[in-house]
Design a binder for these strands. Structure first.
Length: 731
DNA sequence: GAGTTTGAAACT
DNA sequence: CAGTTTCAAACTC
């Protein structure tokens, strides 16, 4: 319809895009439109591979990310949207279905761009773009993500029903073959009226394509189709994407998203969609939060939720799986580990064969007895985490700390699938991640931070050898209550301990490698005998150098000594005010002078400068992967939810994307910093705020970024604190 | 696998 | 806020 002509215009320029009839059209459309627009931008973004990585990787680009996330989320989340929208979905579906059936590239493109539901159709038609973009999400993510989104974000019966289907489809596709899965899905699609299905189907279709041993073939085929349909459109789309990202995307998208969210999403959940990656991570984290929110809502008397809850509810022993799936989504890193273990060999083979990573997880999930959904989610999460790890190891900046990055990273890899190395690494990492998630608690009942699982916001699973474990879906209430208590004591208790700020991804080419993630342990360690050379040291364990925040004695942290130079043993905790080495010190001093804003901007540069970063890469690899990083993500994600709102606002509004991107990346991981920024009330007594006076230090970003990192961090903490509560409580 | 060491978390 | 205890991971044998 209007799309074709409009498309051209949009492609030409960003500004045009807004002004363009397309944009108007979108505006005219139902609330969904904005989302679509977002999707479109995202979908397009995928086209530009280079941009994508940066985008995803860059945490900072909250706007970007989120917008993208939204896009992505929309893809996977389509179901969500649909479920959420309900009626809307139905209508949209029709359109989407028609589109798919018709396979009119031109039309589809236009529609796709505008309508969420169309995305499926889009996927079919636009595959080239979508594939790239979607691939990441859908393959591994796809089903899982979708499911999770549905379950977690919105307690709709449909979501539950859908889940099984998705898994089946995914499983079939994996086991039997892509084609089969595709057909299966299609059939279901027709059968099922729910738009969710459409979304799922579309996703699955994508998956199928990618899953096919010869992704390239499928991809090429798709491309050819698209080309036949109209290459120009694709190109235009790409341009549009670029323009979006470069110029307005941040501003534009967020607004749409927020609106959409407000309109369709429940408040608590609204934030989630923000980022796909975050979704995954958040989900786990959120699980708790979500559950609480649900319950509250239920208490409030939302019937729909109640139905869901009943399914979700802990009460069900059988429900465990289901529950785990929904609430547990966030939880099951462990499952991944297990699954990965069992299936490692298989995974490897598959990887080697050329199948994508994503597929692997799915396969594992399918294989894993425990569970389908959960495993899928876990796999997704795991993949993300593993990717990070790999990135860290490789010092690939692209993968930013953010979950978003992880997701993005996944996507990229998928795109890049070619490299077997990465796959292997991923596998390895997965294995490592596996180890990370077990606990062996005997007295804490897994309800204290002693428990790694609990601390990570994950439910305990089989691999755990814990005793009297209460950290299970069955005891959700207890877990939530305990969690709240702990958070009340220390709002940052579940925040990631180690914050990594990867340098700007976009600049990956630049020095990213040299300057791996600048990560810091928020609190800092308190080692006295280990010299920060053993895993006893959280900093070392996290693969980050010690910072000013650390109280360690005789620090010899291979990743970076407190004082600044690894060589220096300087223990002087406070003493080390040596300017250079310690960005920390410098930061502290400087920070006082500098405002938050300055810190933010400066951060990126600062981070790279830190010697620690340099050191990290070498050592980190092994450690980082194993332990905490993933967790941190999770927690971050949860916290981030609140933050996301802030993110949208600031990044979008204030800063040019390019700049923002860098900054955010650095900052991105810590959302708190952003918040701080946003709130940035300069003088806050952070310390007082932090329950644990010990070391609530700002994330690295802060440190690195702001000369007065300490302050900023503190400030951040303060601000962040409120946010945390909001997350869990969300009334 | 058992025992020791370590440092965070929790408690006072 | 500091000191002590508890706890579970990390480590060693």
């Amino acid at each position: 319809m209007m799309d074709t002509p409009e498309k051209i215009g949009t492609s030409s320029s960003l500004s045009k895009f807004e002004d363009s009839p397309v944009f108007n059209y979108i505006n005219s459309l139902s609330p969904i439109k904005p989302v679509k627009s977002v999707h479109v931008s995202q979908t397009f973004n995928p086209l530009s591979f280079a941009s994508l990585p940066s985008i995803f990787t860059s945490p900072h680009v909250s706007s970007h990310k989120e917008s993208r996330f939204l896009k992505r989320s929309t893809d996977p989340s389509k179901p969500e949207l649909s479920s959420a929208d309900g009626t809307k979905v139905s209508t949209n579906e029709e359109a989407g279905v028609d589109v798919q059936e018709n396979f009119d590239p031109g039309v589809s493109l236009g529609e796709v761009s505008f309508e969420l539901h169309n995305e499926p159709s889009r996927t079919a038609i636009e595959l080239p773009q979508t594939l790239q973009y979607v691939c990441g999400s859908p393959k591994c993510d796809p089903t899982p993500c979708v499911i999770e989104m549905n379950c977690v974000s919105e307690p709709t019966c449909t979501s539950l029903a859908i889940v099984p289907f998705v898994h089946e489809a995914s499983q079939k596709g994996l086991s039997d073959g892509v084609e089969v899965a595709a057909t299966f899905q299609i059939e279901q699609k027709r059968e099922t009226i729910g738009c969710e299905w459409e979304g799922l189907i579309s996703d699955t279709s994508d998956l199928l394509i990618f899953n096919s041993p010869n992704d390239s073939e499928a991809f090429t085929g798709v491309i050819q189709k698209s080309l036949e349909a109209g290459t120009i459109e694709l190109n235009e789309i790409n341009h549009m994407n670029e323009s979006f990202e470069d110029n307005n995307v941040t501003n534009f998208v967020p607004a749409g998203l927020t609106d959409y969210m407000e309109a369709h999403m429940s408040a608590p959940y609204s934030m989630k969609p923000g980022s796909n990656l975050h979704r995954g991570f958040r989900r786990r984290c959120l699980d708790f939060e979500v559950l609480a929110a649900r319950r509250k809502s239920l208490d409030g008397g939302s019937n729909t939720n109640s139905s869901v809850d009943s399914k979700m509810e802990p009460g069900n022993p059988g429900g465990d799986s289901s529950r785990c799936i929904v609430p547990g989504i966030g939880l099951h890193l462990n499952a991944l580990a297990i699954a990965s273990r069992d299936n490692k060999s298989a995974k490897v083979d598959t990887l080697l064969s050329g199948t994508e990573k994503l597929i692997l997880p799915c396969s594992t999930t399918s294989n894993s007895p425990t569970a389908g959904q959960e495993t899928a989610h876990e796999s997704f999460l795991a993949s993300a985490s593993t990717e990070r790890e790999t990135n860290d190891v490789e010092n690939r900046v692209k993968l930013a700390d953010d979950a978003s990055q992880a997701s993005a990273y996944v996507v990229n890899e998928e795109l890049n699938q070619n490299s077997p190395k990465k796959k292997i690494r991923r596998l390895e990492q997965a294995g490592e991640s596996e180890a990370c998630k077990r606990c062996n608690c005997k007295k804490s009942k897994c309800l204290k931070l002693y428990c790694e699982c609990f601390a990570a916001g994950v439910y305990c699973i089989e691999p755990c050898s814990c005793q009297d474990c209460f950290n299970k879906p069955i005891h959700e209430d207890t877990v939530l209550a305990t969690r709240k208590q702990i958070e009340s004591r220390n709002p940052l208790a579940f925040a990631p301990k180690v914050i990594r700020t990867s340098d700007p991804i976009p600049e990956v080419g630049e020095d990213s490698i040299t300057t791996p993630a600048s990560a810091r342990h928020k609190r800092g360690c308190n080692c006295k005998k280990s010299n920060c050379l053993k895993k006893y040291c959280e900093c070392f364990q996290g693969g980050v150098g010690c910072s000013i925040n650390c109280r360690c004695e005789g620090c010899k942290n291979a990743f970076g000594v407190k004082d600044g130079s690894a060589i220096v043993e300087a223990e002087g905790e406070p003493e080390d005010e040596e300017t250079d080495p310690s960005d920390k010190n410098a930061m502290n001093k400087n920070s006082e002078d500098t405002d938050i804003l300055n810190t933010e901007e400066q951060n990126p540069a600062a981070l790279p400068t830190t010697p620690l970063q340099l050191h990290r890469p070498l050592v980190q690899l092994p450690f980082s992967s194993k332990s905490k990083p993933p967790r941190s993500f999770i927690t971050i994600g949860s916290s981030s939810v609140l933050y996301t709102g802030n993110r949208y606002g600031k990044p979008n509004i204030i800063r040019p994307q390019s700049i923002i991107g860098k900054r955010f990346q650095s900052v991105g991981e810590d959302e708190t910093p952003e918040i701080l920024r946003g709130n940035s009330s300069p003088g806050t007594g952070i310390k007082t705020l932090s329950p644990n006076s010990k070391r609530i230090s700002p994330p690295q970003c802060e440190l690195g970024s702001t000369p007065g990192g300490a302050r900023s961090g503190r400030k951040l903490i303060l601000q962040s604190i409120p946010s945390f509560p909001s997350l869990t409580p969300k009334h």
